[in-house]
Design a protein around this nucleic acid. Structure first.
Lengths: 178, 178, 178, 178
DNA sequence: AATGAATGAGTCTTCATTCAT
DNA sequence: AATGAATGAAGACTCATTCAT
């Protein structure tokens, strides 16, 4: 992942990955067999890491659901995640997900779990407020909005600030119930 | 662009591009000098094509501004644009924009003009309704939401339908003035 | 020849030659048919130019033969000939003479006429002084010494000065009769 | 070096070098990284080989200095060195020395050490005979004469015989003290 | 006669993978 | 289990030559 951030997906060759990890060239094939498998496991780890950092926030039962959503948005646009090199890793993977069945599967699972968690949280809010919402569509929107903001800001950080991005998501959460 | 859609950015080699275009291998370098320049011009054309199809809708002075936004959304999720292979072209380019100064510049211009056009249209609506909105943030949100939906649907068309995607954007337009 | 001086023999491509001569790319093949033929004619011209400048000095009947030799040496190490870029042309051709029968023939004729002219002049001096010399060997030596000095100075002008080079040849002329 | 001798410098492609050495194409870049580095090391080896064969002769302290020079000349025009293909290697390198800083440096060092060794030997002879000579110029002359003879004979072995070449150098050694 | 767009063979180089140690 | 030398297919790019205009 460090190599993808540094050199881009196409530039993350086995040679550079080994140098970055201070590991012998042969070790990669010894452990992973194939570069594709290495990439797959790296994407899996990236997903897991993100899941740990954000989605679990949504599952805390004893917390205000709206506050949970807002906390998750804050993480996604906070200094630990919303960095050009880190977002570059995601974009790097996105560009090849379509070409690998393994990555496609991983990706589908990630987004499914993800949207489901959002949807459940929107439902919690709706229940609490006694106001029905199309929670599924709200979840789709929130998830896509965050990815779109990640994407656009990573490609051009001059276009808007991290604060703008965070505020855009907060607005969406607010307006769903307006 | 056809080659990027078919093989992904990394797989769009000069050989395949030539085969796809039924053109000799040397012709590419004769005309473009460098693969990077070919890519740059392809991205420029893609941007221009999209600009022509959508943004100009927003500039029609004699039309209801909200209807303009909705028409534009409809184009972006209509059958001419919202196709996996076509969206794959955008994703392919996104993955390398960060590595090429030329593409970065093109990209920045595209998004600047784009957000500006949305912002002006939101302003028009606000003026008409006599209700102030943060038009800049609305433009950022709409643009990012559309890219996010493109991205996620292209990587996994099972997650939601084109109708869902369009509706998500329509909701956003509606709720900005809620 | 300008291109060879500028870019080296290997770097003297038809494209660069055309640019240097401000002539269309097709013209070269139109006139010379083949690059090899162009090179051949260029080498012929280079030889002729040199012949005109130097060897004809040796044929002036009404001049002191030793002075003729010295005048010729002076030309060869004078500012018009003894320049890195000009000598670079010779070295460039030398590197391919062995690979082309046409150039080989041209080269053989040049050196034959050349050594013959030197030899005759050495003979004249010998006759004048009434002192027999091995004029053939003297001619071989003088010719080779000049080429060796051209070569070494062109590859490294710091090794010795043009004055050194000229003096070395003058010494040889002197010592042949010592 | 065998490839340069066979095909000329321009014709010594990596493919041919690999075929000549019965080695895989990738090995070259694995070991040398770059063709230029391969060439540099080849030139370094050629220089070293020559140095070992000839210049060390001049450093034997307990030998008659004039005899040392003559022995060195004999090596340079003996059957092990004075062969068309071997001399072709030198000419091949000469044609690119001017284009590569690395080769230039190597070349400068070679000739400097070389002329110095000759000069010291001429000085030894002069001391022994009690007769002063311009040893520096004699060294320049001897070195250049040998290169010139190598060059001319390699390009056209019909012009003179190896014996002629050797004798020309011997003459020069003799006449320096005439 | 002159042009320059088009060609495709050939160049160096990169890189995932293999395999003897 | 771990290494890294070796491989060769594939990449972008160069260039002499061809040919329709």
């Amino acid at each position: 992942m460090r190599s993808i951030a540094k050199y881009g997906y196409a530039g993350a060759t086995i040679g550079r990955i080994c140098a970055e990890a201070q590991v012998s060239r042969g070790l990669i094939n010894h452990h992973f067999g194939t570069k594709e498998e290495l990439i797959r496991q790296a994407y899996r780890d990236l997903c897991e890491e993100w899941t740990l950092q954000t989605r679990d926030l949504l599952l805390e039962a004893d917390r205000d659901p709206e506050e949970k959503l807002r906390a998750m948005v804050r993480v996604n646009f906070g200094p630990g995640v919303f960095k050009q090199d880190h977002l570059g890793i995601w974009i790097g993977f996105w560009s090849v997900i379509g070409k690998s069945a393994g990555l496609k599967k991983l990706n589908r699972e990630l987004y499914k779990q993800d949207r489901d968690a959002y949807q459940r949280t929107f439902d919690e809010i709706a229940r609490k407020r006694g106001k029905p919402v199309d929670s599924r569509r709200a979840a789709i929107s929130l998830s896509a909005l965050m990815d779109g903001l990640w994407l656009q800001w990573c490609l051009d950080p001059e276009g808007f600030t991290p604060k703008d991005a965070e505020a855009a998501c907060m607005d969406l959460v607010t307006r769903v119930f307006a």
